[in-house]
């Protein structure tokens, strides 16, 4: 737990998948340019790994098979559940 918190601490959680991929592309471009020093390279690799992990989790969320719901059913559930809700 502590380990994962420490891993995430250097980089903020991306706002969205798009933002994560955009940053990831920037990182790969920077690494490919060969301009980054050792410290920067290691930091970028670490940040990149976190972003890959985030993107993979996002893809996993929509990777378990399509779920179909009916708006009418959801509305009914809402109506049934509403008296109990605070």
């Amino acid at each position: 737990m502590d380990e994962s918190e420490r891993d995430l601490s250097p980089t903020a959680q991306p706002d969205s998948y798009e933002a994560a991929v955009e940053r990831l592309e920037e990182i790969i471009d920077r690494l490919d340019s060969g301009q980054a020093g050792l410290r920067e390279t290691l930091d970028l690799c670490k940040e990149g790994r976190e972003l890959v992990k985030y993107c993979a989790a996002e893809l996993d969320e929509v990777g378990e098979g399509l779920k179909e719901l009916r708006l009418d059913d959801l509305a009914t559930k809402l109506e049934v559940g509403s008296p109990e809700s605070p």
Binding site: G63, G65, L66, E68, L69, L71
Partner: peptide, 8 residues
């Protein structure tokens, strides 16, 4: 494989 909510 996300959720599709049908509004028929």
């Amino acid at each position: 494989g996300g959720s599709v909510i049908w509004g028929f």
